[in-house]
Amino acid sequence: MHSNEEKLAVVLEMSGITPPAEDQEAILRAFSTGRELSKLIFSVAQARYEEPALIFSARV
C-alpha cells in the first residue's frame, strides 16, 4: 500500500536529515532492514508484558 520510499521520505523529514542522491539507495536498504528488525522484536512473545532493561533512578 505504501512503499518504503514514501515512508522513508517521511521519516527523513521527521529526522531533519536530507541525504544526497548518492546515499539514498543505501539509506533505503537500511530503512527496509530496520523495518524488519522492528517486526522481529515485536514478535517476541515473552516481551509482551516485560519491563524495559533501561531503569530510571530518581537519585541523580
Binding site: 519491563e51 524495559p52 533501561l54 531503569i55 530510571f56 533512578s57 530518581a58
Partner: peptide
C-alpha cells in the same frame, strides 16, 4: 511517590520509566 518507592508489578503499565 518517588519512582521506585512503591512496587508497581501487577499493574498494567502506561509508561515503564514514569
Amino acid at each position: 511517590v518517588t519512582f521506585g518507592r512503591v512496587p508497581k508489578s501487577g499493574v498494567v503499565p502506561l509508561a515503564f520509566s514514569l
